[in-house]
């Protein structure tokens, strides 16, 4: 039975640093992907899909806020400061989340890869030893279940419906697979996180992710590309130029009067 950590005061030293790094990854992935998904609002292929994608974006950004609050409780700045004042190298999101939205196939495949990852991540966090995070993860799982159903439905329907849909989906799988592998980038804190029972290891998560994704893509008539190099760097703050552009866009109005209320 692992020791549980009931409150922010109960973690210190390197375990605290490790926990903070883990929560930054969770929060930044959700904020940045939510930002990308929100851009579909008003522009999706059908009104019903538009409304659903917008809900996904709201859930993701809302969950990012909840993670930022946990960070604030651990002594980090408040959520708005974290979202609107950090520079790109301070973000810990994976490259999968920050790529531009692309076409509907691109956003669909990205969302599917991310949702499978997140579903397994949340399952592990829910059993984790840091109580505030485990409690939040259990709550988020309720929403995540529907995201997962939604993502599977889209992959299943578009995977082999028409020649064009299959071609577009396959192209997105080929482009995004390496970025998806980047979600599991090893970090210097990995062993501490696993040893303290905050969450399972990245390699453990990857195995469950891979099994599920391969089976689903096969079912949808799509092929996993061979010999893909994982796109690492995001978890260390080394990002593609897209992130700086995204942050410039996101922080544009805020920067007009950084000390004002908006």
């Amino acid at each position: 039975m692992k020791k549980t950590f009931a409150s922010p005061d109960s973690v210190s030293g390197e375990s605290r640093d490790a926990l903070i790094d883990l929560i930054y990854r969770l929060a930044d992935d959700d904020l940045i992907l939510g930002h990308r998904n929100s851009v579909w609002t008003g522009l999706a292929p059908i009104l019903e899909a538009d409304i659903a994608m917008s809900s996904l974006a709201q859930d993701e950004i809302g969950q990012a806020v909840a993670y930022y609050r946990l960070l604030h409780d651990l002594g980090e700045p408040d959520p708005d400061t974290l979202a609107f004042t950090r520079s790109a190298q301070d973000y810990r999101c994976a490259s999968l989340t920050l790529l531009d939205r692309g076409d509907w196939a691109f956003s669909t495949v990205r969302q599917y890869f991310y949702d499978v990852y997140k579903t397994h991540r949340l399952a592990s966090l829910s059993d984790g030893t840091y109580a505030p995070l485990a409690q939040l993860a259990r709550k988020v799982r309720g929403e995540q279940k529907y995201h997962m159903m939604h993502s599977r439905m889209w992959v299943s329907r578009l995977g082999d419906a028409t020649d064009e849909s299959r071609e577009r989906m396959q192209r997105s799988v080929d482009t995004l697979y390496g970025h998806a592998l980047g979600l599991f980038e090893p970090t210097p804190f990995e062993q501490i996180i696993a040893d303290h029972g905050f969450c399972t290891t990245e390699s453990g998560l990857f195995e469950t992710w891979r099994d599920e994704v391969h089976s689903m893509l096969d079912h949808a008539g799509l092929t996993i590309p061979g010999d893909v190099t994982p796109k690492h760097g995001g978890r260390r703050g080394q990002h593609l130029p897209e992130l700086q552009l995204l942050l410039d866009e996101m922080q544009q109005v805020y920067r007009l009067e950084p000390t004002a209320q908006w």
């Binding site: 930002h35 929100s38 851009v39 609002t41 008003g42 009104l47 019903e48 538009d50 409304i51 917008s54 809900s55 974006a57 709201q58 950004i61 809302g62 990012a64 806020v65 930022y68 959520p79 708005d80 979202a83 609107f84 995204l246 866009e249 996101m250 544009q252 109005v253 805020y254 007009l256 908006w262």
Partner: peptide
């Protein structure tokens, strides 16, 4: 939406525009 200056406004604006799309439907 991409430029909303804080998290509260960002969430509210996405929800608001989503409502408009829902009204169209």
């Amino acid at each position: 939406i991409p430029h909303a200056p804080n998290l509260k406004r960002k969430l509210a604006l996405i929800a608001k525009v989503q409502d408009e799309v829902g009204h169209a439907q």
